[in-house]
Amino acid sequence: MSIQHFRVALIPFFAAFCLPVFAHPETLVKVKDAEDQLGARVGYIELDLNSGKILESFRPEERFPMMSTFKVLLCGAVLSRVDAGQEQLGRRIHYSQNDLVEYSPVTEKHLTDGMTVRELCSAAITMSDNTAANLLLTTIGGPKELTAFLHNMGDHVTRLDRWEPELNEAIPNDERDTTMPAAMATTLRKLLTGELLTLASRQQLIDWMEADKVAGPLLRSALPAGWFIADKSGAGERGSRGIIAALGPDGKPSRIVVIYTTGSQATMDERNRQIAEIGASLIKHW
């Protein structure tokens, strides 16, 4: 067993022997301040990774656009098919120029040779490549099948209805392509620590998230040296922004954090800054 596999296998073990965790309302004060600064709703939840206990939450059962955070769930569904012998990570998928959609920095470079399922998941999570996500959605049967996968996990809230990039439209009061912070946090925890996926697939999923290259201005910008984070960000229309993450000190994750916002007129930089400040408060009061 590799060191990384050992780390993920012992996530519940280490967490069980940690000192009790206590909620700190100071972080919620910052979440509410972010709402004021952005002029928009902000949803927040913080779960203990081992027990699933909610440590703090704000608007945990209000719907927010998922945006690209759905790509972690998508690759979880792909990995479940791999575990069941219905898919192979090494299978190569070929596609054409007509398949390319807006923001496809990886797939646009491989029109000639195609990409493997493993490479597509890596591109979808680490670079948020939209064509990679659409190609992977095709392998599982489309958005409705991802929703069905989530329902089978016990998540009857999260739903995907459309493809990239239309799913980022974020129309107010439109339930399409949305989740709730509580539902997303619980589902992410199941994917990373539950028995739904094999140990190898859980490790692969967290490795992809740990290698995320496009979430630097968010929670990662607030992390002290030595902290662990595996995350996936999302951005959408109407001032929408979000991030889902597993993080913790001492090089291992111990909490799940989900943050979503929508309806702001603020710039992307300002949305990023507010999420980073929430992260800084979380870490300060850990």
Rank of each mutant, 00 (worst) to 15 (best):
T178N: 03
R162V: 02
A170M: 07
V78T: 07
K109G: 14
M180T: 14
I125P: 00
T126G: 11
P143D: 03
V214A: 08
G141H: 07
L38A: 07
V258S: 04
S80F: 12
P65R: 02
G52S: 07
K190F: 08
T107N: 03
A9E: 05
T131Q: 03
P12C: 13
K32F: 08
M67E: 04
I140H: 04
R7T: 15
V72D: 00
G114Q: 04
P253T: 08
L196R: 15
A246T: 12
I206L: 13
L167Y: 02
T112I: 15
A222W: 06
A15V: 14
R59Y: 04
A215P: 05
R92L: 12
H285Q: 10
K252E: 14
Q88F: 13
T193S: 15
D207R: 10
E119C: 04
R220S: 04
I244E: 01
T267R: 12
V21Y: 05
I283W: 07
G90C: 09
T139Y: 07
A132V: 00
L135Y: 03
K30A: 10
L55F: 10
D177M: 01
F14G: 07
L205V: 06
D113C: 09
D99E: 14
S128N: 00
H24F: 10
R202P: 01
Q203P: 02
C75D: 02
D161A: 06
P20S: 08
T107G: 05
R273G: 12
T198M: 10
R91P: 01
P20C: 05
E210H: 10
M209V: 01
V21Q: 05
G142E: 05
S233C: 02
G251V: 07
H156F: 11
P172E: 13
H156P: 10
I93F: 06
L100S: 04
I243H: 02
A183W: 08
D177L: 01
A230T: 02
H151F: 09
E169P: 05
L55M: 15
E175D: 14
N98C: 07
L100T: 07
S264W: 04
I283A: 08
E108V: 13
N98K: 14
T187G: 08
I45N: 03
L150S: 06
I125Y: 00
I256K: 00
E237F: 09
K232L: 00
V21A: 14
A200E: 14
S57C: 09
G279L: 04
M115N: 03
